[in-house]
């Protein structure tokens, strides 16, 4: 009985060690797998945690408002960054050095980095928005930056249209409403004529679907109308209008977006009608105003309002 039992016990023990060995190997394998997954994860948290706080570290200084009026080498500089606006922007989660490459330690090597940065401001966006960058470089504004900017012509770069530290998402009413003013800083005349059309009035008052500058001209692909590639060239204008006016015909596209009706440069019929109304309105309102005032004057003078003459 005992021998049998012993036998069975040792048999059990053998079975046990066998199982143990398997369990141990499985455990090791499990640990190895865990390491494979966890190490990169750990590595990631190791890199992101300090970088988020890097933003905060940068901001400990750059949130100081006096940096907004700093005198550096006899130059007035605005180095203030509004932390709230930054955190609310489309880039709120990016560490500062995602764009300010090279700024990784503080106190930083300001002078060298600044020089580096000044030349690559546009490039700062390229790393992440290559599509827009390539398109922009081929647009009229993009070529201007290269060729004409040295002659003093100011052409817009990414940050002129989007801002720097408060970049908004573009598919919002607020951003769409701001586009006319962005373009208007350099194309003021075009802005004021645009605002006289239904599109301009409606977008100003909050109709998001109304066309703004870039719906007709493109944003990063702006070209002169004379360029066949332009969204508004003879060949393309119809499909541009048809995005929102599916029933449009070629005649529809000859609506004039940028005219001042009271300017002699407007088509003669528009000009004549506008001037006619100007004169008519002044005449009718002046005559009506004088007639009314005299009537009231006589009414009061003769005591007609509350006296026996009236009701």
């Amino acid at each position: 009985m005992a021998g049998g039992a012993r036998n069975s016990v040792s048999g059990l023990a053998k079975e046990f060690t066998f199982l143990m060995r398997w369990a141990f190997s499985a455990f090791v394998l499990y640990l190895a797998a865990l390491m494979l997954v966890a190490v990169p994860a750990l590595a990631q948290t190791q890199t992101t945690v300090p970088e988020t706080s890097l933003t905060d570290r940068c901001l400990t200084c750059h949130r100081q408002e006096y940096l907004g009026r700093l005198q550096v080498d006899e130059q007035q500089k605005d180095l203030y960054v509004d932390p709230a606006a930054y955190k609310d922007s489309a880039h709120g989660l990016l560490p500062c050095n995602a764009c300010h490459t090279g700024f990784s330690h503080d106190p930083h090597q300001m002078v060298t980095n600044a020089e580096f940065f000044a030349e690559t401001a546009g490039e700062a966006c390229r790393n992440c928005h290559d599509d827009q960058f390539e398109m922009y470089k081929q647009s009229y504004h993009g070529t201007l930056t290269r060729d004409i900017a040295s002659d003093g012509v100011e052409a817009p770069e990414c940050v002129d249209c989007h801002g720097t530290h408060a970049i908004q998402e573009v598919a919002t009413l607020e951003y769409r409403q701001s586009i006319q003013d962005v373009c208007g800083t350099c194309h003021g005349g075009r802005e004021s004529t645009f605002l006289d059309t239904y599109h301009g009035k409606a977008i100003t008052l909050g109709r998001e679907a109304a066309a703004t500058c870039v719906d007709c001209h493109g944003a990063h692909s702006i070209l002169p109308i004379s360029n066949p590639q332009s969204t508004l060239s003879r060949a393309n204008i119809l499909s541009t209008c048809q995005q929102c006016h599916p029933q449009a015909s070629q005649g529809f596209t000859t609506f004039l977006v940028h005219i001042t009706p009271t300017s002699p440069k407007a088509p003669v019929i528009v000009f004549l009608v506008a001037v006619f109304y100007l004169v008519l309105i002044i005449a009718v309102f002046s005559f009506g105003g004088i007639h009314t005032l005299l009537y009231i004057y006589r009414g009061i003078k003769d005591g007609l309002y509350f006296g026996k003459g009236g009701h």
Partner: peptide, 23 residues
Amino acid sequence: PEATTRILPGVTLNVALVIHSNE
């Protein structure tokens, strides 16, 4: 506007806007 400019040129809409707005 789409139906109008099937028959008349686009400048008609400019004139219409001036008339409508001023009138």
